[in-house]
């Protein structure tokens, strides 16, 4: 059981997902179940194996340093929950 209830709360805080006490109790079982499945790979000898992040060993491709995007700020902000003067509004963080 790699996760206890406090660890579930800590991860939920890291992930910025609010959880109730009842949800913590349910998640405790569910997440440990998934981690139990994952445990199968812990015993595998992977010494010297290079981690595989991707199907192909690709380099980040470079493109010419020219402007490719047009200004569509109004379009992109049309779906925002709160916008004023072209700025996204969030709750005050500095008093």
């Amino acid at each position: 059981m790699p996760l206890d209830s406090d660890a579930v709360r800590r991860i939920a805080l890291l992930a910025r997902i609010a959880v109730t006490d009842a949800e913590v109790a349910a998640l405790h079982g569910e997440l440990n179940g998934i981690l139990g499945l994952v445990e199968q790979m812990q015993g595998v000898d992977t010494a010297g194996v290079v981690p595989m992040a991707h199907a192909f060993d690709m380099h980040a491709p470079l493109r010419p340093d020219v402007v490719t995007e047009t200004d569509r700020r109004a379009d992109f902000q049309a779906g925002a929950p709160a916008v004023e003067d072209g700025l996204y509004l969030v709750p005050r963080v500095i008093e």
Binding site: V38, M41, Q42, V44, T46, V49, V50, P51, M52, A53
Partner: peptide
């Protein structure tokens, strides 16, 4: 990292 190593295997 272990999962990524297993992925290569």
């Amino acid at each position: 990292l272990q999962a990524q190593r297993v992925r290569r295997l």
